[in-house]
Write a protein that binds this DNA or RNA. Structure first.
Lengths: 275, 275
DNA sequence: CCAAAAGTGTTTTTCATACACCCATGC
DNA sequence: GCATGGGTGTATGAAAAACACTTTTGG
């Protein structure tokens, strides 16, 4: 079996299978032999906002305090058990709204965690990476009963986290950093209309770099080019950025152009930046 | 709550939480209100091997025939329910060995699927991407009771698949293609000692390209460079490839060098190839 | 005028691509 | 010899990086 030398078995030349099972009988959940491992979702919700202690911007994540055992009173990622009638992304959005009040954040699946020692109840957690612009967070006034807080990722080592959430967060931060290189993910962390300086700050905060390592002038050129090209270039794609006006100057210095992201969030950029 | 203007709440300045719950009481699995959604693992095991009809190599995937409802008699991805005492990757390795006899394949998590309509039992599937060199498959003689077959991915549209497995496979193929660009994943699909021509064939098969679109001579230069550099360059990493000899000529033409991959499979390449 | 922020010009370097060409083997 | 497959040399063009410099605002 599976020996490549055996007489060829060709599923693609067979006749179609017997019948379509819709809600066919006989398929119950219970395996009988072992207890089931329940599925849950958890969220790593990030934003980039002024650091509470430093002067610069910082990547921050939402933590909630657990109100029930295990790990009662500990800080943890928001999340909860998956319900019978919802998809994973629906559950993620529901838990995010319920525990933090944030609605409409960008959501994408990060990974799943199912080590049997991670949770005494044997839970398998599907973890979502969520991103929201800092400006949008203030608007949410719908406060649930949960205690929630933003924590800069450089302070995470000082906060004991429940379950394996410290490891999950480490992976989330790593993924976020690497996706900056080849995806449009950063546009989820700035307001709908933004200056290139704002976008630049997001890159600096997430990559934890100084202005020296990533000169602003080159950054502007690179991202400014994303607004060039015709709206329909016939073969490729339309430019993902559009100039929509000028920001008013709120201090000294020349006012910046305002941009709008008009590409699809899931799209990967063909370009690859080494930073 | 979560308003950034509220009086600062600083989890990282708090005293540590009360006590560590090891196997603390009170944490049982039952939520009481809804039935649990069980967790399972499924596998997309790929190899690159001669196409059964064409002359060229082809990317192929393992399918198994389901012996129980739902979808009894249909072709499906190998997989099964997660057991209480195992991690996700252990379950993936166990199911792979049980259903296909393949041991020691490269395993990495692909994504999880939990749409409530995907399975009448409400299963949430954590799907693994698995890769194995074709030369290693023949060696497995431990044949289980399951019926299994290799199917070239270009024939998948002709095979009706159980559940949402067609969508899962589409994602897996897309991920495999995109990871070729920036990861060391292709080395999992060639023998331990390989020629650059063998590696080249893997790239052509997965990307579904001809020799024109990706000239062999440039491929050789690019990957040959991966074997250059000192073993310890002090700051960066050691070269991920090493020349280990010459292949004997089994036909006309100059014999090729044999290479060995000595990097870590999970490592991402700093280089980014556009093909 | 000066400082600060936004953005451009210009050069250098790096690197992917293309393709001509040479090398080593079997027949 | 000639065909076949393995590899290198070299030119070209597109950007990424480095950095000087101009533009536009507030004080």
């Amino acid at each position: 079996m599976l020996d490549r030398a055996e007489p060829a078995r060709r599923p693609w030349d067979e006749e179609p299978p017997p019948a379509e099972p819709g809600g066919a009988p006989g398929g119950q959940a219970a395996p009988g032999e072992w207890p089931l491992r329940p599925a849950a979702v958890e969220l790593c919700l990030f934003t980039v906002a002024p650091h509470p202690e430093d002067a610069r911007d910082a990547l921050q994540v939402v933590l909630v305090r657990r109100g029930a055992p295990p790990f009662r009173g500990w800080w943890a990622l928001p999340g909860g058990l998956l319900r019978p009638d919802e998809s994973l992304s629906q559950a993620a959005a529901r838990e995010l709204a319920a525990e933090t009040g944030v609605i409409g954040a960008h959501l994408e699946q990060l990974a799943s965690f199912g080590d049997p020692t991670r949770d005494p109840r044997g839970t398998v957690s599907v973890v979502y990476l969520a991103l929201v612009a800092a400006a949008r967070v203030q608007l949410r006034a719908a406060a649930p009963a949960t205690e929630a807080a933003w924590v800069p990722v450089d302070q995470l080592t000082r906060v004991p986290l429940a379950f394996d959430h410290a490891a999950i967060l480490a992976l989330a931060v790593e993924r976020l950093r690497s996706k900056l290189k080849y995806s449009n993910i950063a546009f989820e962390l700035v307001p709908a209309r933004f200056t290139l300086r704002q976008l630049y700050r997001v890159y600096l905060a997430i990559l934890d770099r100084g202005e020296r390592q990533l000169p602003f002038s080159n950054f502007v050129r690179t991202f400014g080019r994303l607004a060039e090209g015709s709206v329909d270039d016939g073969f490729g794609r339309a430019p993902p950025l559009r100039v929509v006006g000028e920001a008013r100057a709120d201090g000294p210095g020349r006012p910046a152009r305002l941009y709008e992201f008009v590409g699809r969030p899931g799209d990967e950029r063909r370009e690859f930046y080494r930073w």
